[in-house]
């Protein structure tokens, strides 16, 4: 049965509304599922393909050797080019790709141009996170029982590198660092961990 003339505009309007609603639902679904725990967070492309696997897993370089400020201040900081040259003035790399990447670092050092690393973990501007105090807490041996970010008990005091993995995941075994693979780093994560560890949760601890 053909729709009557009166029905036609109504059907068109209905179709338009369905399309718009569908669009909204799809956008909401994408924005919801692109966040952890489902995790579609892609790693940003870095100017130099730096493999954490070679440096940390194979050669056992400590986190704080390059991220020097992590036990001293708020930001972990990425290393200066000079820090890379500390080893790479002698070490050339085994594969051709490695050699080209190391060559980029040396050129940056010789031409005095800092490497423009892309930031992987970015907290909102209204959050003040201090790496130093968190590492100090977890590495402290005088606190008998600490709790990890998922509520698991940590009885032996971890070292600095183990502390990093609590939030950042096992970065040492990754060739590319992806955001939010260890933890979602949402406010709920922070507050949960503060609660189980009996740390103040006053808003001004992080937001000021």
């Amino acid at each position: 049965m053909m729709p009557s003339r009166k029905m036609l505009p109504l059907m068109v309007a209905g179709g338009v509304v369905t399309v718009i609603m569908g669009f909204v639902v799809i956008v909401l679904l994408i924005s919801w599922f692109s966040n952890p725990p489902f995790g579609l967070g892609n790693a940003p492309t870095q100017p130099v393909a730096f493999p954490h696997t070679v440096h940390v897993a194979e050669n056992n370089i400590q986190c704080e050797f390059c991220h020097r400020n992590v036990t001293k201040g708020a930001a972990a900081t990425v290393p200066a080019v000079e820090t890379c040259l500390f080893c790479h003035k002698d070490i050339d790399g085994r594969t051709v790709t490695a050699q080209t990447e190391i060559e980029k670092v040396r050129t940056a050092f010789e031409t005095d141009t800092p490497i423009d690393w892309e930031r992987v973990h970015r907290l909102p501007d209204h959050v003040r996170f201090i790496h130093e105090s968190h590492i100090r807490y977890f590495t402290d041996e005088t606190i008998p029982v600490k709790y990890g970010i998922n509520g698991e008990e940590i009885i032996e005091s971890p070292d600095v590198a183990q502390t990093c993995t609590i939030c950042h995941g096992d970065v040492g075994n990754k060739t590319v660092v992806q955001p939010k693979t260890g933890q979602s780093l949402k406010m709920g994560t922070c507050v949960d961990c503060h609660r189980v560890n009996n740390i103040p949760t006053d808003c001004t601890i992080c937001h000021k």
Binding site: H126, C203, H207
Partner: peptide
């Protein structure tokens, strides 16, 4: 808050 301050949370 506990410290006798009137706090404004911007976010």
């Amino acid at each position: 808050n506990d410290e006798g301050m009137n706090v404004q949370i911007y976010n």
